[in-house]
Amino acid sequence: MSNSLDTLLSQGTEELRLVADEASLRSWQNRWFGKTGEISNALKRIAEIPAAERREYGQKANAIKEELQAAHDAALLTFREKALEEDLKKGSVDITLPGRRPAPGRLHPSTQTLRKILGIFGELGFEPFTSHEVEEDEVNFGLLNMPPHHPARDMWDTFHTTRPGWILRTHTSPGQIHAMRKAAPGPLRVVLPGMCYRYEQITSRSEIMFHQVEGLAVGEKVHLTDLKGTLLAFIQRLFGDKRKIRLRSSYFPFTEPSMEVDMDCILCAGKGCSLCKKTGWLEILGAGMVHPTVLKNGGYNPETHSGFAFGLGVERIVMLLSGMDDIRQFWANDWRFLKQF
């Protein structure tokens, strides 16, 4: 009796050795482990075994079952491994094929740079103040110390609307008046971002529309040295902490003293290159101490209060930082341009 069990093991093992793939293995398993398979049959035969031998028979049959099962599992593992090997071999791809790119949204370069600028001034304590773009001549010029026919009006070529006395603001400075009138006589530290308009030919160097950021601080202790320090801090944050600035005397009707602020060239650090036109310096800001008349028009007493103001062009900064040479790209919004930012 146990002999038949002995052949069972060798027979099963022998048949398993002939199994070549996973499909045949499944037939083998059916034949040996199925409901009417060899193993079930052998186990069912236990009833025919004399009682005294049943225990031994049962143990042996179970041992055979386990051994064959283990042999099956090992074979299965081998087949699977082999199949995986083959899949992997077949599944290799040309990794130089282009990737499937998500389509991200991006912010316009002017927005990105404007945010950087406002962020730095935010940390320096200046909060943004937004103002109108269609503005009264009186606020854009008159209250900023430029009465009609003031020669300084020639510095800005103005778009006039068909409604007399209303123009497109030529700079963010009229916002100074609005901000001061809101805050006076309290202290004020604001940045005024926004679009400004100039009546000009559109060329690679000049646009009819551009973003300006103007800064304004008014208080009882606001000095020219603070203006210099604030601008130095700003420029070093934006362009790197090695940057130096230079203040040149200039003229704006709404500040006194007035100055142009240059920084040493970001490419050549002052040695002279094509970006700075060999001068070593880049003109970056206009600035000055708020003119007493403007303070008065804003609601402050110039005897007790002083202020500083400065203004810069956002697109010019983007151009400096990115090496762009055509300002018309900003409002053309060509997707091939925008996706580079």
Partner: peptide, 29 residues
């Protein structure tokens, strides 16, 4: 202030130190 501009202009702004605004102010706007 016009005279002060003349003085600072001819002194040269490069001679001025750089400072930061004194104190913080509550954001009112």
């Amino acid at each position: 202030v016009d005279l002060i501009e003349e003085i600072s202009r001819l002194e040269g702004y490069d001679r001025l130190p750089s400072t930061l605004l004194e104190g913080t102010i509550a954001n009112r706007l």
